[in-house]
Design a protein around this nucleic acid. Structure first.
Lengths: 166, 166
DNA sequence: GTTGATGCAAACTATTTGCAGGCAG
DNA sequence: CTGCCTGCAAATAGTTTGCATCAAC
């Protein structure tokens, strides 16, 4: 059931090492889940992942999806974020370059960006408060290029905006 | 039941104007809730507010607490945030100066800071992506001054950290 | 008197957990 | 074989909603 080590993607290897270091087991479900996580192009939530697996005949229970995502977060292979809506968002970690998010309040699209000066700013802020930073999350809520042209600032829009939390 | 307008705090007046502009009613519950929101020194969640009111004999139902907080958010008197734990956080808006948060992952304390250069940075980032910013939220997770001295980077700590999401 | 507001309980959503049987090491 | 893992269903936590009653305007 397990694939040969040759040609095994890096993330699978890292996960396997992580599991072994904790005396945890490399099950078929865990392998399929990692593969699917890294097959995701964008951010996803637990339910989307669960669905995607089901559509491929890999019916992994929600409980296992949550349990495995949690392991992947601990392992550093997955990042978990909260954008103010009711559920958690996950994304595969493909590089060690930290990025932040622009979130469109109309189409709910997520745009990633990286800003080195933001990292410096974080340092400055933290040293002022003797705070030891471990990680940060900057979210800018607004309208993406497409949506800002579509919606002429109508009532429907401002209502929708007032629903979303920071 | 309603207090006289003289000496009524600014936020009460703003809330009253907001309600009238929408044909909504100024009830005793709503007044008590606003008063309690602005009596809060720090961030709070729906349940803390509900408790605080109950302790003063103002037994306002949870449903009404949520409904009224929602109105206050729409009115701009309250800010709602999500820090990755399961519940929403609220804070009274006392000035129009936007601030962001340092969040201690050990004691869960919240430190506020304001950085004008962050606002400029936001403009720069958004114009690169033709994104129209409406508001943002920068959260820096780490250890506050007290906790960084207390905990010598033990196991308990790193476990706790891995629980929290970004 | 209208119309919107409240409290209650039930519904809902996202997530977690206890348990019995199953599989990796 | 031993202990971790899985699926299931039940439990939880936070929040929302339907409905009958009640109060503001």
């Amino acid at each position: 059931m397990r694939k040969p080590k040759t040609n095994m993607p890096d993330e699978q290897q890292r996960f396997e090492r992580f599991l072994r270091s904790r005396q945890l087991k490399l099950t078929g479900e865990r392998q399929e889940l990692v593969a699917e996580v890294f097959a995701q192009a964008q951010h996803f939530d637990a339910d989307q992942l669960h669905m995607a697996l089901k559509q491929q005949g890999k019916a992994i229970s929600r409980a296992t999806v949550y349990r495995t995502l949690d392991l992947l977060v601990q392992c550093g292979l997955v990042r978990k974020s909260s954008f103010g809506d009711q559920h958690a968002h996950y994304e595969p970690v493909r590089s060690n370059e930290h990025h932040d998010h622009l979130i469109c309040m109309n189409c709910h699209g997520i745009i990633e960006f990286f800003r080195p000066d933001l990292e410096h700013l974080q340092e400055a802020i933290c040293s002022e408060h003797a705070f030891k930073p471990l990680h940060h999350s900057l979210q800018i809520f607004g309208l993406c290029k497409v949506c800002r042209e579509l919606e002429p600032e109508g009532l429907a829009m401002s209502q929708r905006i007032s629903q979303l939390s920071v």
